[in-house]
């Protein structure tokens, strides 16, 4: 029953994909020679004018270009011409570093907030004000104080991924079932051991949900941040190809950003499942 549903869903997905590619192809294909013009003029104008070809690349152009990129993802011909693999690698490394820093800060702090009502109240106003600030608004301040564009991007990733983790950890820790705490209390389990053997496993699904939200936000923000700081990364690549008017490359980059985002999300989803136990 479920397997047949999955099969039918897959068929519909493939059909939708094929229809999309078909429409895309038809909408962007050339209409043949439109007007007679002198060969020199035609060479100047390019296919757009001579064959009625749309300025938008078709699926075949994108496919061919993608194949070309996949052949050599890691080439490096100087600052403005690097393989997509390298660009994605830079972005993932920045996200990874900023995210890791956020984990190191948010989880212990979230624990503290969740376990101590005093600290919860004391930090609440700061969190409430800092949380809604767009991470990119920090960029000028980061550039000014850190004086390094790469580190600034990492800082922006840190600041945007810290909040969901912090709030989810605090919530998860505070919402641990009272009876589990009582079990630890009746067994005279010390505070530290209780934190690791009862509170952490009990709050883990909530904490990981926060981490999953964070990685999604971090991946959204890195593209924008790299457009601002420039130099390397997939965000910079998109901007650079826009300046080169290479829509094909922009489309390829968009596709890859989506794929990597999905991958990151799936990894965190798998971790979440690993620590979630039904009662």
């Amino acid at each position: 029953m479920t397997s047949s549903l999955r099969l039918r869903a897959a068929i519909v997905s493939i059909a939708l994909f094929a229809a999309f590619i078909g429409v895309w192809h038809i909408a962007t294909r050339g209409t043949g020679a439109v007007a007679s013009m002198s060969p020199e003029y035609a060479r100047l104008m390019g296919l757009t004018a001579t064959a009625g070809k749309s300025a938008m690349p078709g699926p075949l152009d994108v496919g061919a270009k993608l194949w070309e990129h996949l052949q050599r993802p890691f080439y490096d011909n100087g600052p403005n011409d690097k393989g997509l693999g390298i660009q994605l690698g830079y972005s993932i490394a920045r996200v990874g570093l900023g995210y890791l820093l956020a984990v190191i800060v948010a989880i212990p702090l979230g624990f503290l907030i969740g376990m101590s009502p005093l600290i919860n109240r004391a930090l609440d106003p700061f969190i409430q004000i800092l949380k809604p600030i767009s991470p990119l608004a920090w960029m000028p301040l980061a550039l000014y104080t850190i004086k390094d564009s790469g580190l600034s991007a990492i800082f922006v990733i840190f600041i945007c991924s810290v909040w969901p983790m912090l709030l989810n950890t605090a919530f998860g820790v505070a919402a641990v079932r009272k009876e589990w705490i009582n079990v630890a209390r009746t067994l005279e389990v010390g505070t530290l051991r209780r934190a690791f053997t009862v509170i952490l496993p009990a709050a883990a699904p909530t904490i990981l949900t926060g981490m999953r939200i964070s990685i999604g936000i971090a991946w959204l923000v890195i593209v924008a941040a790299e457009m601002l700081v420039g130099g390397t990364g997939i965000g910079y690549f998109v901007w650079n190809e826009w300046n080169n008017l290479s829509i094909t490359n922009v489309i390829i980059a968009i596709l890859l950003i989506g794929m990597v985002g999905m991958l990151l999300d799936q990894i965190l989803a798998r971790f979440t499942r690993m620590v979630t136990f039904p009662e």
Partner: peptide, 10 residues
Amino acid sequence: IFQSHALLPW
């Protein structure tokens, strides 16, 4: 012995 057994599910 708790009414809701209070076992640690993990």
